[in-house]
């Protein structure tokens, strides 16, 4: 995880697609799975997303990301499976607990959708450098200032995390306990968090100054150090994605 993001540096056809097309893909792919309640179609979309991950040589990298959503998926299966409001067709029983088909079918659909969502975002975040995405958005008219904010979080966060060790040491050195009963732990929250808050807010002054003296508020037409990377197939992909979305919308309306 370079720079704290999921980006995986590889040479692949998916890496070469322009970031905005991938962003559009995430949107279209998620939208389709939520517009259609048809399990085979949703499975198909998921399979396509997984294929992209495979082409991007990042299929195994998506596993830890899915792992983070496991609690949610587990909860979907248990809650929807057992307690879905629509409980008519008994699928089978475990002991005396009846399992209903409707619930599990719905749980399966939701799980497929969540998996697709996570994997579709995976396609974007595993194969796109954050700076490339932000640069593309800025060239498309997003404010460079918002671009600055997005990228600076990625740099500042590791710095702030590094500071927490020092703060914990400094407060323990003054006799503050971080282990013990709930009240001891609650009491130590403020002494631990406040120095980071004060520190980082104090740093914003220096950083604002650093930006001001580097012409951050300049009104001149800005230039870019790096030329636009020559991403491929951007136009075709965007057309195809838009067409698929339109088709699905049409299907929903007319069929």
């Amino acid at each position: 995880m370079k720079n704290g993001t999921f980006y995986v540096e590889k040479a692949s056809i998916v890496h070469n697609v322009d970031p905005l097309s991938k962003l559009l893909f995430v949107f279209v792919s998620v939208a389709i799975t939520y517009m259609l309640s048809n399990q085979p179609v949703v499975s198909g979309v998921l399979a396509f997303t997984l294929l992209l991950l495979l082409l991007g040589k990042v299929l195994h990298n998506v596993l830890p990301i899915i792992g983070l959503s496991l609690v949610l998926i587990f909860s979907i299966i248990v809650v929807q499976g057992f307690f879905h409001p629509d409980r008519s067709t008994v699928w089978f029983t475990i002991g005396s607990v009846p399992i209903y088909k409707e619930g599990f079918s719905y749980a399966l659909l939701l799980t497929l959708r969540v998996l697709n969502m996570v994997c579709a975002f995976g396609v974007l975040i595993l194969t796109t450098k954050p700076d490339d995405l932000v640069q593309s958005l800025i060239r498309k008219g997003m404010s460079p200032k918002i671009g600055y904010v997005l990228l600076s979080v990625l740099q500042i966060l590791p710095q702030m995390i590094a500071a927490t060790g020092k703060i914990t040491d400094a407060q323990r050195a003054r006799g503050m306990e971080t282990e013990g009963g709930l009240s001891t732990r609650v009491k130590s929250f403020i002494p631990l968090l406040t120095p980071v808050v004060l520190n980082s807010i104090n740093d914003t002054r220096d950083r604002s100054i650093a930006l001001e003296i580097r012409g951050f508020n300049s009104t001149s037409e800005r230039t870019f150090l790096h030329e636009t990377n020559h991403f491929k197939y951007g136009f075709v992909i965007k057309i195809l994605l838009a067409a698929s979305l339109a088709a699905v919308i049409a299907w929903r309306i007319f069929i």
Partner: peptide, 10 residues
């Protein structure tokens, strides 16, 4: 603006 990344860190 610079407050935003700091706040996200917090």
């Amino acid at each position: 603006l610079v407050l935003i990344p700091a706040a996200i860190g917090i």
